[in-house]
């Protein structure tokens, strides 16, 4: 008896990308800031393309601290949601068409978020990655790092706590 053939790679990619697009694409504020997500397997990198409307100090000019906070918080929530949904995405339990139509599962909510501003954000693209340090049944703790030209020179980092959505039957 031969093992089951693995799914074609296009099918797997399409399902993962559809889930990611649904997760980030349906939120107006994420679209307004222009934040996008790049995916390598299950690893996500958030990208914030520079735009004049994101400036907070016209003299420097520098990214607005609030934009940086919003970018990091968005990265944290999407990463946490992504990890939460990943098993269902892989199992094919989430219908991409229904996700695309805006039928998203309940997502984590921010309890608190602390941003550490390490240097001013330059007027160019910014990147961020989040790491879920603890994911519990009710609470999660997520750390986020953001950089611009050099991955090792962070311009901001943040830690946040999130309230997890109630699970079915829990």
């Amino acid at each position: 008896m031969s093992p089951a053939r693995p799914e074609p790679v296009q099918v797997v990619k399409q399902r993962r990308d559809a889930a990611l697009a649904a997760l980030s694409g349906g939120v107006p504020y994420i679209q307004y800031l222009g934040i996008g997500f790049e995916r390598r397997g299950d690893e996500l990198t958030a990208v914030l393309p520079f735009d004049d409307k994101l400036i907070g100090n016209p003299r420097l000019p520098a990214l607005h601290g609030g934009v940086t906070a919003a970018f990091l918080e968005t990265t944290a929530i999407i990463e946490l949601s992504w990890q939460m949904l990943w098993p269902d995405i892989e199992a094919g339990a989430l219908d991409p068409d229904r996700l695309a139509a805006g039928e998203l599962p309940r997502l984590p909510k921010t309890i608190d978020f602390t941003v550490d501003y390490l240097r001013s954000g330059l007027p160019r693209d910014a990147y961020a990655r989040a790491r879920v340090n603890r994911s519990g049944r009710r609470y999660s703790s997520v750390h986020v790092e953001a950089w611009q030209d050099n991955r090792s020179r962070l311009f901001a980092q943040a830690t946040g706590h999130f309230l997890m959505p109630p699970r079915d039957g829990g």
Partner: peptide, 16 residues
């Protein structure tokens, strides 16, 4: 808006 279902403003905008 941060939650299209409810129309609640995104936390990031409140942060800003």
């Amino acid at each position: 808006v941060g939650d299209p279902e409810t129309g609640v403003i995104h936390g990031g905008a409140v942060s800003a």
